[in-house]
């Protein structure tokens, strides 16, 4: 079967440790994490997760989890880490802990060509964003809680509404937006990239120093040995670290 999201077990070269490390990703955020036609989780985040596990010589299991429930799932112990392009924010730090960042994100406003929307005047338009994301928080700050901000459960649904013309613009992360624009003529990034000092990290439960140190060491390791650069170039043509 093709589309049903299934777990993907990855075996590292060395024999298994006592417990496999369980890593969650969303599976609906191309090109960082998505489900391919064979039902496997693939993407930049997944490749980074695999590289980290190989570096740590740990056995890993990667599972898909919907965005809305991804942090509650971590705190409840469904898995041990989230590698899903998650922004490190103050609000999230109250519930979970993060490793060092593994890349930086920018926000962009995507709109129909010639619509007049820019990153400065969004509050005059109807704007979409995915619920529970940093893009939604940014949009809320720009528009106030009473602006015409529409929140969607998935990015796919919001892009569909932009295409249909239900909303004038959509606030998205830079890389997925670029990916979407490749297949959709007539739309473009409105205005400049928005630098919101958005660092992307791996979320783990609080008070798990050992795991945090191990992940940070592995991250430095794959950056130093060129693995990170290789994966990044494969997806984006450049090193995005």
């Amino acid at each position: 079967m093709k589309k049903t999201v299934m777990t993907l077990a990855l075996l590292a070269a060395t024999p298994a440790m006592a417990e496999p490390l369980r890593i969650a990703t969303e599976g609906a955020y191309p090109p960082f994490n998505e489900v391919n036609a064979a039902g496997e989780l693939v993407g930049f985040d997944v490749d980074i997760a695999n590289a980290l596990c190989a570096k740590m010589e740990a056995e890993c299991v990667i599972v898909a989890q919907d965005w809305d429930g991804i942090i509650p799932g971590l705190t409840a112990g469904k898995y041990d880490a989230i590698i899903a392009s998650m922004s490190i924010t103050e609000e999230r730090l109250q519930t979970v802990d993060f490793t060092d960042p593994y890349y930086s994100n920018f926000l962009v406003v995507v709109a129909k060509d010639g619509s007049g929307v820019t990153s400065e005047n969004v509050k005059e338009y109807s704007v979409g964003a995915q619920r529970s994301t940093i893009a939604a928080v940014w949009a809320e700050e720009q528009m106030g809680t009473r602006g015409d901000l529409r929140l969607y459960d998935t990015t796919t649904a919001s892009f569909a509404d932009l295409e249909a013309g239900r909303i004038d613009a959509f606030v998205a992360d830079y890389f997925p937006a670029v990916e979407w624009l490749k297949d959709n003529a007539g739309f473009s990034i409105a205005g400049d990239r928005i630098d919101i000092d958005d660092k992307i990290g791996i979320a783990i439960r609080q008070n798990e120093g050992e795991l945090k140190d191990a992940l940070n060491a592995a991250l430095n390791g794959i950056i130093a040995d060129g693995t990170y650069g290789e994966i990044s170039t494969q997806y984006f043509g450049v090193d995005i670290y």
Binding site: D68, I71, P72, E91, Q94, T95, G128, R131, S132, A136, V137, E140, R150, L151, Y152, D153, D161
Partner: peptide, 20 residues
């Protein structure tokens, strides 16, 4: 609230997303 209407449930879900 699943079709972007900000009724009580829509607002509730947005507030929940800010701090769980």
């Amino acid at each position: 609230s699943t079709i972007t209407v900000m009724d009580l449930m829509g607002q509730t879900r947005s507030v929940f997303a800010r701090g769980y």
